[in-house]
Simulated scan of single mutants.
Amino acid sequence: MIGYVTIGVSDMTRAKAFYSSLLTDFDARVLVDMGRICFIGKKMSEPMLAVCIPYDEQPHDPGNGNMVALHPGSKEAVDTTYHKAIELGATCDGEPGQRIPDQFYGAYVRDPDGNKIAFYHFG
C-alpha cells in the first residue's frame, strides 16, 4: 500500500550519507537521485524512503507527531540500528527497550534534521 514516505531535510548531501549508511543493513540504497529529492530502498516496486529539500524552498519542518517507523527484523537489530544511527549523528529520542510487555520493542532517534525515526519489533 505505501509507495514511499518523504521527509524534508536541510542538507541533501548529509541526508543521503546518513540514510544510505543507516539503511545498508536493510539492503537499501539510493535508487533515484533527482538532486532536490532522492529515493532510498531495495527496489522501485517496494516501499521507499524519500528525502528532499521542500519543493517550496522554505525551511523543512520535522512536524510534531510525524515519524517514520522502520522494522529491522529483531530486537537485536533494533538495538544495532539505533546505535548505528547515533554513531551517524542522530540524537536519542528514546533508548531501545520493551514498550509493551511481550508485544512492542522500540527505540527512537532524531536524524540530523530533527525528523523522528522509530526502530521497532513486534513480539
Rank of each mutant, 00 (worst) to 15 (best):
P62G: 02
S74Q: 08
G65E: 05
C92M: 09
E57W: 02
I100S: 04
D27M: 08
D61V: 06
G106K: 03
D79E: 14
Y105S: 05
N115E: 01
D113N: 11
P47D: 09
I40F: 12
A107G: 13
P72T: 09
N115W: 00
V78G: 05
P112S: 01
D56G: 00
D27A: 13
V68N: 07
H60S: 13
S20N: 08
F26W: 05
G63S: 06
E87W: 02
S74D: 06
D111I: 02
P54K: 00
L70D: 06
Y82G: 03
S74P: 09
E95G: 10
D61C: 06
G63Q: 01
G89R: 05
E57R: 13
V68I: 14
A118H: 11
R99W: 14
M34H: 15
C92D: 15
D25R: 10
N64H: 12
P72S: 08
M34F: 14
D56S: 10
I53P: 10
S45M: 10
L70S: 04
A77E: 13
A118Y: 00
A77S: 11
Y108I: 05
Q58V: 08
G106I: 07
D27F: 10
Q98W: 15
K84F: 09
L22Q: 04
A90R: 08
V32I: 13
Y105W: 07
D33R: 11
P112N: 01
K42H: 14
I37Y: 11
P112V: 00
F39D: 12
A77N: 11
Y55G: 07
D61A: 12
T24S: 07
L23M: 14
L88M: 02
A77D: 13
L23R: 03
K43H: 15
P96N: 06
Y108M: 14
P112Y: 00
V68R: 05
H83L: 12
T91Y: 09
Q58R: 14
D111V: 03
G97H: 06
H83G: 00
L70F: 05
P101G: 06
G89T: 06
M48G: 04
I86C: 08
L31G: 07
G94R: 02
E57L: 15
I117T: 03
A118V: 01
P72Y: 11
D93Y: 13
G65Y: 05
H60P: 06
G63A: 01
P47M: 03
C38N: 12
D111G: 07
A50T: 04
H71Q: 11
K42F: 13
Q98G: 14
I37N: 05
Y82P: 04
G65C: 08
I40A: 10
V109P: 00
D93P: 06
R110E: 04
D61G: 07
G114H: 09
K75Q: 14
Q103I: 10
M48T: 12
R36F: 11
P72Q: 08
R36I: 12
V68W: 05
E76T: 13
T80L: 13
K84V: 07
D79A: 01
E95F: 10
I100P: 07
Y108T: 11
A118F: 01
S20Q: 03
A28E: 00
K84G: 05
A50N: 01
I117D: 02
T91W: 02
V109L: 08
T24F: 00
R110N: 05
P101A: 13
D33H: 08
P96D: 11
I100A: 13
M44H: 12
R36V: 15
G65I: 06
